[in-house]
Amino acid sequence: MSRFLMADAPVAIGVLQRELLLPQAGGFCSFEGWVRQTNDGRAVSGIDYKAFRPLALTEGQAILEEATARFAICAATAMHRIGYLAVGETAVWIGVAAPHRDAAFGACRFIIDEIKRRVPIWKQEHYEAGETGWVACHDVR
């Protein structure tokens, strides 16, 4: 079962989190990325996320498998939205369950960094002034 999800509508984050509530896990770490109202000094009204879905799903799942092999974690799930999102909406969510917090924190950071670097997702910002612009999604911290 793939634990990397792409959604074109809001997702109930609580459901994703509950799936990681495992008896062998003593800790949980999550990251949630939202559409912010400014970027590089420009007022943003929303972002339109585009993806090459087949490759994005495959690469996202590979990242989760790498995290599981690299860190002492029980399980990890990640979700990235596609389509138009307004300011404040959740664009990406990652959850990691592990026996200990250090592994959960490390795996969570690894997953978001690798998603930004490797998964073919592009974003077109919509600005309050009416223009749009494509913004790099890779390795921005």
Rank of each mutant, 00 (worst) to 15 (best):
M1Y: 14
S2N: 09
S2R: 15
F4K: 09
M6H: 09
A9L: 12
A12H: 08
G14N: 11
G14F: 09
L16N: 01
L16Y: 01
Q17F: 05
E19G: 02
L21F: 01
L21N: 06
Q24Y: 14
G26I: 13
S30C: 02
S30F: 07
E32W: 02
W34R: 01
V35R: 04
T38A: 09
N39A: 12
A43Y: 10
A43P: 03
Y49L: 10
Y49N: 00
R53I: 11
P54L: 08
A56F: 15
E65W: 13
E65L: 13
A67H: 05
A67D: 05
T68I: 15
F71P: 05
I73M: 00
C74I: 10
A75E: 05
T77L: 03
T77C: 05
A78Y: 00
M79F: 14
H80G: 04
I82P: 00
Y84F: 11
T90E: 12
G95A: 04
A97H: 03
A97D: 00
A97W: 01
R101A: 06
R101V: 13
R101W: 07
A103K: 12
G106L: 14
R109V: 13
I111Y: 02
I111T: 05
D113T: 11
I115M: 06
P120D: 09
P120C: 09
P120K: 14
I121L: 01
I121R: 03
Q124C: 14
E128S: 15
E131H: 08
E131F: 15
T132F: 12
G133V: 09
